[in-house]
Structures are given as C-alpha cells and as structure tokens.
Nucleic acid binder design. Structure first.
Lengths: 358, 358
DNA sequence: CTGAAAGCGCTTACAG
DNA sequence: CTGAAAGCGCTTACAG
C-alpha cells in the first residue's frame, strides 16, 4: 500500500456539505493516469498537451471537483490573483462605492479582494498595512482621497504592483503610480459658475479636508470653486469646514447661517451639505428660498432629502473598476504593454430643489 | 560556495522603498548561526529554546526585517489568520458598519480580511464565493441580514470555520452556526409600543425584505411590530414596502400618504424612512404634525435630517466585532473550549423630532 | 535544547 | 508531447 492511505474509488459526485479533503493536482494525475506535471500543463493551458490527454484530465478535474490551491500557486511563484485595498475608511459613501467597484471588477476577473484599513498617516501604521498587503502576494490598490491614503500611496515600495484612486491631480502633476480620478475640479468650477449664473453675488464653500501633507494644497474641489469665482471677478470668501461628516457640515452651517450675505453654498460632499441644510433650517433660513446649496458626490439619499439636494454625481464605482483594471494590467501582463496611463470618468451636475435662482 | 549564491553582509538597516527579496526563515538562520528549525521555534514561541539563542534569533529577525510568509504558513498547515466576509452588499449602512467592525477586530488580532460579494442566492454563485473563501484557508464570516446571506450560510460546508451576523432568530430557533445578533425584534416592539403610547390608534409598518427563503417568515422587526399591536389589542394593518432603499420607502410612503387614517409609521430601516418622509412631504402631510415616523438602524445622517429622524440604534460594528471574536475562537482554539454560543448587543430607541404625541 | 528529514500543492527549468 | 527533479517558505514529527 502507498504511504498516504487508501485510494477512494467513490469519486462520482462532487462532495456536498461534507468536508472531504480537497483534491490535489496529484489526485487528479493518479485518476487520469498521467503525471501531476501534465495536470499542471492542462490547468495552465499549455499548448503542448495531446488533445485526448487534455480532455481526459479535464474530465477528472470536473469529476473530482478539483480547484487549484491559490496558496500553493502563490508559494510556487505563479501569478497571484489578489488585490488588497488600502483605505482610511470603508463606510463613507465615496469610499464604500469605490470599494464596491473594485470588488465587482475583481470578482469578474477571478481575483480575491482584501481590505486593510489605515488608522493614521503614521509610517508605522502604513508600513504594517503595506506589509500585510504584500504578504498576500498580489497588488495593492490605494484609495487616496484623503491625507492618510495619500501618505500610504507615497510609501508603497517600488517593487509592489500598485494603482490608486485619487482626487484630480493639481495642474500638471503626474501621479507617481497609475491612477484614476474624476475631474472634480472642473465639476466644482461648473457648479460654482452655475450658482453665480443664478444671480448670487458670491458662493461660499464648505471644504472637505485636504489630502496634501500639512494641508498645503487645497483639494481640487476647493481649487475649482476658487477659479470660478475669480473668473467672474469675485473675491473668494474664506472657505470653512473641518471634517467629512454631517456634524462638521452642521458646525460650518451654523456660522454661515449667521451671515446674512450668504446666499449660496457649495459643499465638499453631501454629508457636509446635509449638516449645512440642517443648520440653515434651525436658523430659520429657507433653502432654496434664502440660500441655495449644492453638494458633492450625489450620495444615494440626496435625491430624497427635503429639499432634495443638488449635487455633483461622481462615478465612484467606475473609478474603482478602472483602478482595478489598471492594477490587473500590471499583475498580469497582457498582449500589449501595461497601461501606465490614467483614466477619467466625468462628473455630472445634478440640479434639484436645493439650488434655485436668487 | 553554497549553491544559492553570495551571502550579503550589508544587512544593517531594513530596506526602504527598494524591493529587496524578503528575508526567509533560512536567511535568519544563517545569520544567527542556527538551523531554520530553531528560527521556526522562536517565531512560534516554543518553550524549548535556550534564552541566549532566542535573543540572538530575535535580534537577527529585527535586523533583517524578517516577516514570516503567510502563504508558506498556510501551505504548511499552520494556523491561518484570515477571514473572508461573505455579504450581498458592502454599501448599505448596516452592512458597511458590520464589515467595519469585523475589520477593526481582525486587524487588532493580526488577521487579514477578504471580502466576497454574493450576487444572488443561486447555488452556483454561493458556491463560487464559498470556494474562493475556502481557498484562503481561513474562516468565513457571513452577513446574513437578507435572503442571499441566509442562503449562503446554509451552504457553508461543515468543515469550514464559520460565524454569522444575523437578524434575531425566530422564537426558539438556534442558528446552525455561532451567530451574533441584536434583539431587533424586541426593539421593534418597543418602538411600536412607544408610538401607541403617544396616542396613535395604530402603527403602520414599511418592511425590509424577509431573509427567509420564499419570504415565508417575516423579519424579526415585522414580528416585533405585530406583537406590540396585538398586545395592545390592535389588529395590525397590512405591512407595505418592497426593497431596502429610499426609493422603496418613497413608493410605500406615497400609498401611505393617501390614507388619512395613517398617523404613525415604523420603517424597517432609515433609508426607507427617508423615502417615507419625502413622500409624506410631497403629499402635504407634515411630520410629526400629521404623521409620526420612526426608522431603524440609526444611520449617521438620520440625526441631521429635517425633521430629525427617530430611530432604533443598532450596534452594527459591535456585532461585527463579536462575530469575528467567535470566529477566532474556532480558528485559534484558546485555553477554554471555543464559545459556540451567541452574543447580543442591545438596540436603543433614539427619539428625535419625527415622532411626537398625537 | 537543537538539527536533519519529509511534506503542504503547486511551479519552472531539464531531460527524454 | 510527457515525466522526474528541485524548490517556493514554512511546519510537524523524528532523532539526537
């Protein structure tokens, strides 16, 4: 008898429910009467295998319910089909939707997807996440919409396959890694110009935090807002806002509500806008009667608010999908050279009740 | 010279940025002047290693920046520190928050977390996801708040470590796998009783979809609502609602708004409630003046709506954390026997502007 | 307390 | 077209 025990002859139907030890390449080989090497060739679509042999092996694979071990594949140095998403957040709308896009595309491509959340922009934290991601053997996809993500992107070792979902890059800057973004700067300009066109003397801005280290650069959204005002010969008021959520928007809104000259507000995202709406309401200023408000991202609930919120629709899932595609090109060299170029999805201004003519 | 090539003597600082091939257990052994076996003992905290040897090895590990390969560990049959979350959705609040809880706890425990989204409740889809999860070698955590998740939970092979986040089980039912839930049924009863106590003659319910196959059983939330009405001697009206999102709530709300006897509405989640609020508003019925509304889950934005939404706060991240802890017990047998028991987190009724006395 | 052996499931060269 | 060998980085028995 062989060392490894009895050979089971009852391999008709794939096991159901019960946990029989998974079939290996050698099990398939034995049943098919070939070497495990030949099985390897078959599952890798190697040309040099006789058609009959190939068919026989395929039959046994189906019969035994064989699945090649991703772990062994990785150890042996085969192409690893895995992505790890590095992000500071998984629940905010833009982040969650980007992750969703990545997952959809990855699943379709047969990749597994891991998630590693970054607690801070400290090197130790980032390196821990990076090391964990590298362990998986696959590539890394960083969501760099904020300072933490941007910091992580900086520290990705050059040998690690990596792409990023980012804000639109500041004029002329080329991201170090293949990146995907939507032109939110142009969109902010458009939204601001729209408000100006409605007859508002100026437009205030409730900012999302900057993604640049030390907040040295404003976000593209802030830049677009500023440009639109300058184009119209209006001196931009001081932007406000410190945070990402409704609470931060509420705080900013309280201050804005006290200023009677405020008649139009652009917000860095819809959560901030929600808080602003609430603050304005409490202060007795009606929207859009007294103040027009436009948000950013077009979160799913924005259309159902009262008043329904005008916003800039961002194709986050599309960004996620494109970022994955770029990563895949790096991991799995296709026919052509890997696209190292960037991709763009166009944001769209969606007008609803919260913004009206003055 | 040894077969494997030159021995580098320049191992002072850990490599930064550059992609030097990661140090293996053998590299550490060579530098420390021991066998790779001994290194294995050290990194596994085996007792039988002389303190001096142990210290020396630890020093070399730090010096070389050695990290044990998770892939090799898994192949060799070591304990795999990985969880795969199976879910039908990653963006809805309850799901995203549960996932967040899992990730936090997993990260703290040094586990990697994978996400696999279920497209449908078809066996083929489920088995694909299950197989992918099993590949990782770790455990599976299924979010079974809906029919798809519940169906996946049913098909998890018995040999695969698994826990679940579920709705509160129907009377007396014991979940097949270690599971975690919050008593949303009791919470629904409480919310309904509260509305009744306010003087409403009855309470209407906008349901989330049932998680039972063929929708044979109502969700615990629906059950709790029904019980409260029956306890008060009120015949429950027909529940409405078909879906999870604001749009579904809006549709249901339109019908409710037409019925002048409707003065109180409980919703299966806050998204539905948002849609109901909107429909009521469009129909000219004021909240809470004409109709009181209470949601479920207490999503982050609910406190900032106008009117602010009363809701039942669910500790989803707590559920996620507890579910991970249960899974870890299975994977990594601790001192005591693995807890196969369930865990509970208590929901809390949060009263805001949307619900007032009649 | 420590080392040499065999194996996890696969792969990439090397031989027929 | 196909097989026997060596190795990926680790582990668990087996010997000292």
């Amino acid at each position: 008898m062989p060392v490894t025990g009895h050979t089971r002859a009852d391999a008709a139907a794939p096991p159901e429910g019960e946990q029989r030890k998974a079939a290996s390449i050698r099990d398939v080989a034995r049943v098919a009467g070939v070497s495990h090497q030949t099985v390897s060739r078959v599952i890798n679509d190697h040309p040099s295998v006789r058609p009959e042999t190939r068919d026989r092996v395929h039959a046994v694979i189906a019969q035994l319910g064989f699945r090649r071990s991703a772990t062994a594949l990785a150890l042996a140095g085969g192409p690893v089909r895995a992505v790890t998403v590095l992000t500071s957040n998984t629940t905010l709308y833009g982040y969650a939707a980007t992750l969703q896009g990545v997952e959809e595309e990855a699943r379709a491509a047969g990749f597994s997807v891991g998630v590693s959340v970054l607690d801070s922009d400290e090197d130790a934290d980032i390196d821990r996440a990076l090391a964990a991601a590298a362990d998986s053997g696959g590539g890394v996809l960083v969501i760099a919409y904020d300072r933490i993500g941007a910091a992580a992107l900086e520290r990705v070792p050059s040998g690690l396959a990596c792409t990023a979902a980012v804000e639109s890059p500041a004029g002329g800057r080329i991201p170090a890694r293949p990146s995907v973004w939507a032109d939110d700067r142009a969109a902010a300009r458009e939204a601001t110009a729209h408000l100006l066109g409605l007859g508002h003397a100026t437009v205030h801005y409730v900012a999302i935090p900057s993604s640049s280290p030390g907040a040295r650069r404003p976000s593209p959204r802030a830049a677009g807002w500023r440009e639109a005002l300058q184009d119209a010969g209006v001196t931009p008021p001081k932007p406000c806002g410190k945070g990402w959520d409704a609470r931060a928007g509420y705080q900013a809104g309280l201050a804005l509500a006290r200023d009677p000259t405020v008649t139009a507000v652009l917000c860095g995202n819809d959560d901030l806008a929600l808080g602003v709406l609430r603050a304005l309401h409490e202060a007795g200023r009606s929207v859009p009667g007294d103040v027009s408000v436009i948000g950013f991202d077009d979160a799913p609930h924005s259309a159902y608010l009262t008043p329904s919120l005008s916003s800039v629709r961002m194709d986050f899932t599309g960004i996620g999908r494109a970022a994955f595609a770029l990563l895949r090109d790096q991991l799995d060299p296709p026919g052509a050279a890997a696209r190292s170029a960037v991709e763009v999805a166009k944001p769209e201004l969606v007008l609803r009740e919260s913004s009206l003519a003055r």
